[in-house]
Design a protein around this nucleic acid. Sequence first.
DNA 1: TCATGATGTTAGTGCTTACTTACTTTAACA
DNA 2: TGTTAAAGTAAGTAAGCACTAACATCATGA
Lengths: 203, 203
Amino acid sequence: MKIRTDNAEKARGTREKLLEAGLRLFSEKGYLGSTTKDIALRAGVAELTLFRHFSSKEALFKEIINSYTFLPALKGLLPELQEMAYEDALALIAKKFLNRLSERRELIRIMYSEMQLYPSKVKEIYHNFIDELTRTLASYFEHLQERGVLRGFDAEYGAKAFMGLFFSYFNTQELLLKKEITGAERDKLIKQYVGIFARGTVK
Amino acid sequence: MKIRTDNAEKARGTREKLLEAGLRLFSEKGYLGSTTKDIALRAGVAELTLFRHFSSKEALFKEIINSYTFLPALKGLLPELQEMAYEDALALIAKKFLNRLSERRELIRIMYSEMQLYPSKVKEIYHNFIDELTRTLASYFEHLQERGVLRGFDAEYGAKAFMGLFFSYFNTQELLLKKEITGAERDKLIKQYVGIFARGTVK
DNA sequence: TCATGATGTTAGTGCTTACTTACTTTAACA
DNA sequence: TGTTAAAGTAAGTAAGCACTAACATCATGA
């Protein structure tokens, strides 16, 4: 009699529906612009149900941030990269990075909208996104510098420059201008940017 | 009797105080997070005075966007650039661009916060900021390509890449993380980034 | 079959907010 | 000095908001 599995499952279902609806609405209208009524409506439940699952609107918001912030590591990519040609490796990283950003578009939008309200949360999201990738990339550069493939630039700055290139593309095209980007455009962009960056860093 | 100049000046004064206070508050707390009471308070006037100058909160918001959007042209820089060494020219452009962004920090913050509410305004701001500079930069690159200094990359993409590098730096450091950047750090960054980009684009 | 837990329905509370009305104060200027 | 334009003071309105209380419905599962 301890746990009614089916009821519990149902509860988990509506809980997730609320998190998902909240993510989308907060991303579209901002925290203050999203009403609990609308979130519940979009989740297909009564407003009161929202408060039965989350003690307040803010609690819901924080849980959304937490549950969507986690990202799978990319460290495992390192050995694979070392067997590839430099430009191909860079193109692969760029592609994975852009995909990652697209997947988390809503979260990033929230990050920008609420950066004044929750600066520490925003920094957390940012670091979760960027730090590990920066370090992976920097150590990859350092490795190639030791092998004499790359010239002696500051690896940390190099990593940030590389990611900055693609982040700013994502930022303007997909977040600000909301353009639909075709695969072909994306490939051309990657080729051009990687071309510049690769030539700029080899010996 | 037509115009009482001093009265008119006074009115213009409080009007500007309101625009300035609005800019700062909207940038800090977002459109919905800023109350008309607080804006008036920060401007040092009564709330009612705000409504005597602007028909509504939204009207104030739109006037703020309009009056701060305009930016002086950078086209005049082109002839000057052509007498400089390539890397020095790039460093100068980067410096001017970063200064421009810092000057308009509040406006850019508003742009990010309200991009869902006023997408067309946001696009306008973006284009005002970026388009002219992109074209100036691209034609500079084309000129150097014709003279055989630079290799044959896509000049438009190159310009976007260059600006993206520095925009994304501004974005993360000054907007998101709100770090105070020293002049020395900024100079090192410019040197590193320009170094990569210059080597990546010369023949 | 019937107790239980999840959800729905409806109505409402107290607070905040954009905006208004009516009246007063202040200072420039003819 | 008296008129006028700009700003202040004070009180209030209507709407929207997060959140609550009371009760009804319905499917699950012992």
